[in-house]
Design a protein around this nucleic acid. Sequence first.
DNA 1: AAATCATTAGATGTGTACAACATAGCAAAA
DNA 2: TTTTGCTATGTTGTACACATCTAATGATTT
Lengths: 233, 233
Amino acid sequence: MDKSPTKKSDDVDNKSESAAGRRFRQIYEEIRSRISLLDYPPGTRLSEEALAIEFGVSRTPLRRVLFRLQSEGLLESVQGVGTIVTDISNEDLYQVYQLRMELAPLLARLSPLPITEETVAKFEDLYRQSEELTKDPSAHGYCVVNIATFHALADLTANMPLRKAMELHFYQTASIWLKSLGEDDVARECRNLNDEIRDFYHAVKIGDIDALSHLWRAHTSASVTRLRQKLGD
Amino acid sequence: MDKSPTKKSDDVDNKSESAAGRRFRQIYEEIRSRISLLDYPPGTRLSEEALAIEFGVSRTPLRRVLFRLQSEGLLESVQGVGTIVTDISNEDLYQVYQLRMELAPLLARLSPLPITEETVAKFEDLYRQSEELTKDPSAHGYCVVNIATFHALADLTANMPLRKAMELHFYQTASIWLKSLGEDDVARECRNLNDEIRDFYHAVKIGDIDALSHLWRAHTSASVTRLRQKLGD
DNA sequence: AAATCATTAGATGTGTACAACATAGCAAAA
DNA sequence: TTTTGCTATGTTGTACACATCTAATGATTT
């Protein structure tokens, strides 16, 4: 028979995952999406039983998802109180951003993938979406485009540990970003995101992933600076 | 009466953690230790029920620990088969090491902590331990000193996300390292570890954390090079 | 003898009842 | 009015029984 190369990474990536694995992945991504899209803003108290009923499972498999999100710092469970969406302090926020800024340039250093026409098309589409977003700014739209842009960038490295680390720290801060700013800054941030993606698009068009990674770092740094000024720290 | 302050952050670090949290932490560290010390070498099949009985709990809280170790890539569970200690491929191993090499210099860039007399004493003690290890080399002794050295290094940054990332990727490769080499290379690797820690000790003595971090990277790189030569890739 | 299929043992996955715990609300006493 | 303590309620944590799945085993058929 075919002794498959046994390419099993750790948990999720293969199409040949068990029924339990697919269910886990689906629920996990749904809840994480709700957190990062501010459907569950920081401080929200979730109910295990309510979520279990909603997803049509018992508490047991659902808790497995919550444990995972808890280990990733997105949730906190306290017996007798509830499961709360993490609202990290400003200091912790800065620490995560510091690390994100250092990880960004590694995109071009650790197993960078070749930029294909498909990649260019993806960033062109993101640029178009961000253009529309500036015409009708919204917090939800910002999060959607921001998350999609992140994944487009992270997909450019074949180094899975790096990609996972980037993903972990991105989602740790994704939901906090807009909440820390006021609702009145959403329009401005949408314009900033538009400028950011335009820069990305230009770098991708000429196939310069090194420039792309440092543009990423630069815009991340600028975002933190705006946040610090806003919070007056 | 005394209403204790009950300051609880997220999961582990405070002394005032719940009884469930302490139990989780204890079992988690014990099993992780067994994996990294090669008591459970890669490929070992664990039994949830046996472990539950050993630790005096039911399968439910024990599975929470296994889920965590699974999400960290140290275990893999397959229904109907069992829970197996991960034995990652050489390619995945190199990818993790590539990231570890990039993370090492960040020790001196992201919130480095001042090197105190206590730090110097800690590295002096590690140096002494590694000296003894060279006189009586053993795989177990190597792992013990290697893990202790890692924690001494990681403790030098106040950036918790960085520290956690370093810890994650260290334990992902810690148990594979000696296993990939033959038993006949243990003595040589003990000497290499001794040289490594001597370099670290000298850098710590003069308070140069930047030199320390790059020595760390250099020795990590050399370790990978030896492994690649051994495996002939 | 070889191949095929049913059976069986043992593993993880799931559902459910109950325990442990924290908080809010209310009542009673100072 | 304020404080204190109790009770009710809802939450997460735990234990256990059962479902589902895999691999090995042995019987049966070719």
